[in-house]
Structures are given as C-alpha cells and as structure tokens.
Amino acid sequence: MKFINKNLIKQLIKITLEASKIISDKNKIDVLYNKNPIKEIVTNKDLEVNKFLTMGLKKTRIPVLSEESRPFNLIYNKKKIWALDPIDGTVNYISNSPNFGISIGLINDKNFIFGIVCLPAHNQLYFNTSDKKCYLNGISLKHNHKKISESLVAVSLGSFPSDKEMLLFKNINSLSLGCLRTGCTSMNICWTVINRFQVSYGFNVKIWDVAGALAIAKSSGCKVIINKKNNSNTLDFIAGSNNSVKEILKESKKLGLWKI
C-alpha cells in the first residue's frame, strides 16, 4: 500500500539531504543550552536544521511535531503530523562521534507510516515508499530474522534509566550476543533493519526520535511492537527479528516494564 506520493518523497529526500549539509558543516557549533535533564543538549545546528526542515515540511500543510518545537498536545491529536528530530544524537554530534542523524516520520492516526532517516557521517539515507518497500541509498532492504542468541541488541535508554530498565539490559545482554547503547535511536533502528543489529528496544523514547525509523523498520519486515502512552510524547518500542522481539517482550513483562 502506498501512503505517500512520489513527488513528496522527492521533496523530502531533497530537504533532508540539504539539512545534512548544514549538519556536516561542523564549523561554528555552539551549545546554546541544556534542557532538563542536563544531558539533553541543544546546539545552534539543532535549531538551524529544525527551522530549515520545518519550513520545508510546512509546504505539505501537515503540522510538524519537533523536538525543538512545542507544544506537544496541540499537535499530536491531529490526524496527520510530521515528527521531526533535526539531530538525533546531539551529544554524539558535538563529541565528534559519527552516530547522529536526521529523522523525519509521518504519523497518520497515530500510526507510523513513512520515514526518512539520514546518517550523514555514515553516508546513509534510509526511506520507505510503502508499507512493504524501503531502501538504503536506493537499494531495497529486507530484514533477515535471527534468534535472540544470535542477536546484537541496540538499546535506547533515557537520561536516568530505572533499576528495572538496567536489570533488563543485564538480562538481555546475557541472552544475546550483547547489548549496545549508541545514543542515536533512529540509527539503532535503521541498523537493525540492515542487520548490523538484530533487534533494538527503548523505553520512554521520544516520538520524534523513532517515528521515521519505525516506519522504515515495519516496511523492511521487522517485527515492531510499540507501547504508546496517553497524552505523552514518549513511548516504548521493540523492533527487529521475530524471536528477539518476542524474547525481549517476555523479559520486559517479567520485570513489569511492559504492562499490556
């Protein structure tokens, strides 16, 4: 099923790559302020890219929900919205780690249906064109499912993870080939699609961090389960190989982290 027309995809690719140019110019990066908690940093580049992409997306007449724009509640209840993270992994970005990206997702009736994620330092551009077709740099992608014992797991944790979340991390680390925390959720999910990881999960992650990447993951054949929270801009997710998702869900439920 196609959700989005060709011309719109062309426009989105264009503006995302233009935005990647802004990020790639690493001159004059200023940390403007720290949000609460202190680990959440905002740079001038976040705001610059946010402004550039928001302007580009405005042409679609679909409201834009962004990490750098507010308020959440007024926007999230609309039928269609763009969820935008201008720089996912800002701490990595200012620390000269290549693990950061631009993430744009289209949410329709609270379902993630389209995504475009650009990882400029890795020269990677991911997008989907339907619920069954997604691409990395133009090459069609299909996730290759593996068991949890053969899986490398990418984990997204908030700034102050709970004891239960840390215990889950420990348990999954034992069940799998190992757990990693990269600091860029959209990259975790996209690398799960291409089997650099086999599964990724996160608790209390922001919608704009994952909206695009989860749409791409679904269209690659990854199993995706989401625990949306009412009137909140956060959610829990597990995405990747069938068996690995099942096992992580089982462990999460045991610890009372997944209540559905």
């Binding site: 060709k6 995809i9 062309k10 426009q11 989105l12 690719i13 264009k14 790559l17 064109t129 691409y135 133009g138």
Partner: peptide, 9 residues
Amino acid sequence: HIELLQNSM
C-alpha cells in the same frame, strides 16, 4: 526508482 533518486538529489 533510480529516476526518483536522480530527481530528488
């Protein structure tokens, strides 16, 4: 989709 990629980049 090579045409799409050409025209969007």
